[in-house]
Computed example of a mutant assay.
Amino acid sequence: MYLGIDQQSGLVYEGIEGPVLPVVPRPTVTQAKLIKRDEDWNDLPTGIAHSPMSWIFREDTFDPVTRTRRGRLFEAESRQPAAYKVLPDPYEDPHGRSVGAGGRTTKTLFAYKACAPLLQEPQRGMGLKLALGTRGAASGWRIVQTEVVASGCVMVTLKSLSAFGILPAVNLVEIPEEFKQSISQAIERVLDAAFRESPISVIDHCRDALTVLLSRWLVAQGHDQSILGDDLGKIASAVARSPHDKGGISWLAQVVARLHSRGKTNEAHSRGLRDPVEEDAELAIQILGFALRDIGWAT
């Protein structure tokens, strides 16, 4: 199966032997790039006119509750763009005035075919990250299922990696003025790093954010300001003591502190610990969200 995008109008065409049939209604198509290294985020496409050789994702369904997208993935044809004789699109030419011989009209299309390179990846790409969008704005997704459907298309199911569906918004109204900037900056660093940087880096950002967040909350509750210079372990212990009694936050904060230590090569080696993975980084982000909600500083 082929997919074609009109160079002038952006109208979409498809077909088994070539992109000749207009797709009605027009689907959502997005440029895509497989992310194998952190540096790949700096090499995203810059729009179809400037980066026509990128992969294309054609969305079929989107579930905002489970944060999953399902659609077809295409790779570029070798010559871009090229002229194709297509059937007239009913939106553009409802009366067929542009029809020539054989009932077709000529269009200049960016053409794409089923994304065979993904099938050559280990596990047919399952578990890898896929960026959708351009360098100006892109989102991160994990490939959780890959199939080849009867038409020959490569169908993928994607799970969102966006931290904006995980972390609650910070309620700045509840935070003392002197702490608003430091807390906002710490949370922002987590959001910038989430699923883009390595798991160790994301965990480090979460540890720092928890240290800033909980120490400032303790001071706002009347604790001595010396707590602002303590590490996360001491802060977590203080959170658990009376009159705060936030045992859940304390235990979870210590989990993040333990995950952080796994990022230290010598300590991990001496204790026989495995390296942190993406799921560990996601756990750290979830713990930060739990802490925000439990101390009442989330919207």
Rank of each mutant, 00 (worst) to 15 (best):
M1F: 03
G4C: 09
I5W: 04
I5N: 04
I5C: 05
D6C: 01
Q8Y: 10
S9P: 01
V12E: 02
E14G: 09
G18W: 06
P19W: 01
P22D: 07
V23S: 02
T28A: 13
L34P: 00
L34W: 01
I35L: 12
K36F: 12
E39S: 15
E39F: 02
D40E: 09
N42W: 07
D43A: 14
P45G: 05
G47A: 04
A49C: 07
E59G: 00
E59A: 03
T61D: 10
L73V: 07
F74G: 06
Q80D: 06
V86G: 09
V86C: 12
D89V: 07
P90A: 02
H95P: 00
G100M: 10
T106E: 13
F110S: 00
Y112Q: 09
Y112W: 13
K113A: 14
A114V: 00
C115E: 14
L119R: 04
Q120L: 15
E121W: 10
E121V: 04
P122N: 03
P122H: 10
Q123V: 02
Q123M: 06
K129G: 08
L132C: 07
R135N: 08
R135M: 11
A138I: 00
S139L: 11
W141Y: 14
E147I: 12
A150P: 01
A163C: 13
A163E: 05
V173S: 04
I175S: 04
P176Y: 04
P176E: 10
Q181Y: 09
Q181G: 14
Q185T: 15
I187E: 10
E188D: 14
R189K: 05
S201D: 13
I203R: 00
C206W: 03
R207E: 05
D208R: 13
L218M: 07
V219R: 00
A220N: 08
A220L: 10
S226V: 08
G233R: 15
K234R: 11
K234N: 10
S237G: 09
S237T: 12
V239Y: 02
S242P: 10
H244K: 01
D245Q: 13
K246V: 08
K246D: 13
G247N: 12
G247R: 12
A253Q: 09
A253C: 09
A253Y: 00
L259Y: 05
N266C: 01
A268V: 04
S270P: 00
S270D: 11
S270C: 04
R271N: 08
D275L: 09
V277M: 06
V277S: 05
A281W: 08
E282N: 12
L283V: 07
A284F: 05
Q286I: 13
L292G: 06
D294A: 11
I295Y: 03
G296E: 08
